[in-house]
Design a protein around this nucleic acid. Structure first.
Lengths: 180, 180
DNA sequence: AGCTTAATATATCAGATTGATATATTATAC
DNA sequence: GTATAATATATCAATCTGATATATTAAGCT
């Protein structure tokens, strides 16, 4: 019970809003959930089939489209399963930053190398932040149109605040490197 | 080349400072690296044996101790391998927060549930932050004793800044939840 | 001394996940 | 007309986690 596969819960969560194909699910994850969760096709497609086998979702072919398109819909059992998982305590929040790992061992490779990693990190964050700020603007406009928007905004605010802090840290880290 | 196993690099990084047993490595990771990297015994022990087979580390039994204790030492090849990895660009920085995932789907379970997850997160961070602040104090004192300390401090400052931001977000998130 | 619990120490494995690769069709741009 | 990008699904080796098993030694208590 405590060990529901995370991928199942993400899929059901996304399907709880709307019917989706595996491909669309992957796209949603790569845009909206990207900064705090990710999944690969190698886990999405098998998990979707598994959801159907367990009666948590149904699958139908899209007859409108000429493509080989499987549309997945959440069932009542699926909705119950999702709600149950949402009510359980969080098992794990994990940050896994290779940048910090390389920095931690920085004395083996020297200041120049460390600086390169900090600046690459800084650039990556600077590029990602505008998307979050844009999402914030949109969500604030449509906040009252859907109860879900408030919860999306909550996660976006998390991203904005932490990314801004990352950029602050980059500036201070560069100073510490140079002056220490 | 671009795909060195991360576990190998962490092990070599830790061994580059001092000789260690698998158990000691796990302890170091659970304390020092914990907030930005983690590894399980199931990856540590096989990887250590693998490092020995590839000539990147040597293994010897501790004859002083009565225990079944294997001490691992980095070789010159191991040091080269580590340096090479440190010079390569970072492949992936990943944040995987189940708390944000559950919050994102919060409209399915309601405000009370969301509040519970935020407060559990807040508590976890409040408990972890003092350890980072303590590490900061210590490292600032011994900063000039070892070139590596500056790099440790860099990662600790990252942790402190982001954790403080997390706590700030928790307060605002609770307000947004209640008032929205 | 004797007993219990915590800490030290290594090993293994099922299950979950990634990242890469393969394959094919349809829409878009030039 | 044709090259390229986007849509769509599937599969698999390699990796890693979390759990479990096993055993020894140190520390605390009475």
């Amino acid at each position: 019970m405590a060990n529901e596969k995370k991928i199942d819960c993400v899929l059901l969560g996304l399907l709880s809003h709307e019917e989706l194909t595996g491909y669309e699910i992957k796209k949603r994850m790569d845009t909206t959930l990207n900064f705090f969760w990710s999944a690969s096709y190698g886990s999405i497609y098998p998990a979707l089939n598994d959801l159907v086998n367990r009666g948590l979702a149904t699958k139908r072919e899209d007859t409108n489209s000429k493509r080989n398109k499987q549309i997945y819909t959440i069932t009542e059992n699926g909705r119950d399963y999702l709600k149950k998982w949402l009510s359980l305590p969080v098992e794990k929040d994990e940050l896994r930053y290779e940048t910090l790992l390389k920095l931690f061992f920085g004395s083996e490779s020297g200041e120049e190398q460390a600086l390169i990693h900090i600046e690459a990190f800084e650039k990556k964050i600077q590029e990602a932040l505008p998307y979050l700020l844009h999402a914030e603007t949109i969500l604030n406009k449509v906040l009252n149109e859907d109860a879900a928007h408030k919860y999306y905004l909550l996660t976006v605010e998390f991203g904005i605040k932490t990314y801004q802090t990352y950029l602050e840290w980059c500036r201070e880290a560069k100073k510490l490197l140079a002056g220490g």
